Computed example of a mutant assay.
Amino acid sequence: MTSPAGLRALLTGICLLACIGSARAQASLDAMVTAEAKEAGFPALAAAVVSKGKLMAVGTGGTRRVGTSIPVTHQDRFHIGSDTKAMTALLAAMMVESGKLQWDSTLAQVFPELAAGMDAGVSRVTLSQLLSHTSGFPSDNEDFDVLLAKAVRQPGNLNEQRYWMLQQVATKPLAREPGTGFAYSNLGYTLVGAMIERVGEKSWEELIFERVFKPLKLTSAGLGPQATLGRMDAPLGHTLVDGKLKPMLGGPEADNPLVISPAGTAHMSVLDFARWGSWMAGQGKRAPFLVKPETMKKLVTPVVSMSAASTSSTTVAGAAQYALGWASTKMAWTAYPVAFHGGSNNMNKAYIWVDTERDASIVVMTNVATPNTDDVMQKLAGKLYARYVATVK
C-alpha cells in the first residue's frame, strides 16, 4: 500500500506532467505579437487561435498606455466594438427559439402602440432585416450623430433611451425599401436591442450578461470602456492626434455612448474572445447549447451581397456578403469564405475569424485604430491560420 506521503508525491508528479503537457500543447505567441506591435507602432497587441475546441496558441505584448511600460497580460480586457453585433444576433436568436420573436417579426408588431404613427416602410422592417443591415435605414450619418447626442440626454435607463430613439425614427421615411440592399447601420442594431428588451422584459445589458456572457463563461466580459475610471487596469484605447498617439483614460469619451451597446460596446480578454470564437466555430458541437445547431448555422449564413455596397464602417470593409451579425468573405489566406467581423470605436480594434468547416477561430485585438491597423491585424491572422489551422486535419 502506498503511504500518504508517497501518494502525495505521485499525485504531484501526475499534476506536473499534466501541466507540462498543457503548456506544450498551447504555444506562446507573446514574442511574436510583441514584435508585431513594436514594428507597427501599436501600444499593445493580442492574438489567439483555437481549433476543435482547444486553445492552440495565445499571446499578448506591448503596454497598456503609450509612453509607459505596463505589461499586457492574457487576462487584460480589450474593446471589441462591433464584434458585439454577433452576440446581439445570438440573443435575438434565443428569443426566436423561445417563441418571443420571429425572424420576420416587424417593428409594428413588437411595438403595436407606435404602429399607427409609423412610416409605412418602417412598420414593415423585420428583425432579420435589422440584423443583416437590409432594413432600409441608412448607414451612420450626420442625422444619426444628432439623434445619438440627443438620446444620451434623455431621462431614464438605457432601454428607455433606445425606445426614445425608436420613437424618433419611426415616423420618418427610410432611405430605401426594406430588404432591397445593404447599409451598415448601428441604429439598426440599437433597434434590435429595443426589440429584445420589449419581449425579454429586461434591459439588453441584463440579458447579454445572463444569457451570453455567463453561460459561455466569458468572465472578463463587460460593457463600455475596458479600463476602469482612474485606473490603468486594462490597455487604454488610443487616438492619433497630430501624428502622435494619445491615450484615452476611462470615461465618457473612451467609448461610444452606451445606448448603442447592442451595436458594439463590449470588451473582454483575448482568452474569452477566443472562447467565444471557438463556441461559434463548433456550430453546436460543444456546450453550452444556447441555441440549436441549425440556428447557429443561420447566424453565419450570408443573407445579402455587399459587393456593390458602400459602408462607413471599416470593420466589414472587403466583405463579400453579410449574414446576421457576421460578415463573410474569402481571405487571401483561406481556400473558401469564412465568417468574420471587425470592431472599432476608433480608439481600439478587434477582429475575429470563424472557420466552421475546420472548427477553428482566430482573434486579434489592439488598443489603437490607425490607418495601418487593418493590414497589420489581417496579415498576422494569415500567419496564424497557416501555422495552426490550415495544417490541422
Rank of each mutant, 00 (worst) to 15 (best):
T329W: 07
K38N: 11
Q167V: 01
P262W: 11
V58P: 03
D104P: 05
M94S: 04
P235A: 06
H341D: 07
E201L: 12
Y189P: 05
R176K: 14
E253D: 14
E294T: 15
P247D: 03
W276R: 05
M1P: 12
R124F: 03
D375W: 12
D359E: 15
L29A: 01
H133M: 04
L258E: 14
V122G: 04
E97G: 10
P371G: 08
W276Q: 07
S328L: 13
P4G: 02
K244H: 15
E160L: 06
T190M: 09
Y189S: 06
Q378S: 13
T106F: 03
W204R: 09
T315N: 11
T60K: 02
T2I: 13
L258H: 11
E177P: 00
W103D: 07
F111Y: 15
I80E: 03
L101F: 09
L11Q: 14
R162W: 09
L258M: 15
A93G: 06
P178W: 06
S261C: 14
K298P: 02
A327S: 07
V58K: 08
M94H: 03
D83R: 09
L299Y: 02
A40C: 05
R198F: 00
G62S: 09
M306D: 01
T60Y: 01
Q378G: 06
A23Q: 12
F273Q: 11
M306F: 00
L324H: 01
A317G: 07
W333Q: 01
S135Y: 04
M280F: 14
G343R: 13
V66Y: 08
L7Q: 10
V259S: 10
W353S: 09
W353I: 15
E201Q: 15
G282L: 12
I14K: 06
G117M: 06
G156I: 09
A86V: 05
A263K: 12
W276L: 14
M248T: 12
L384I: 08
F209V: 14
G156D: 04
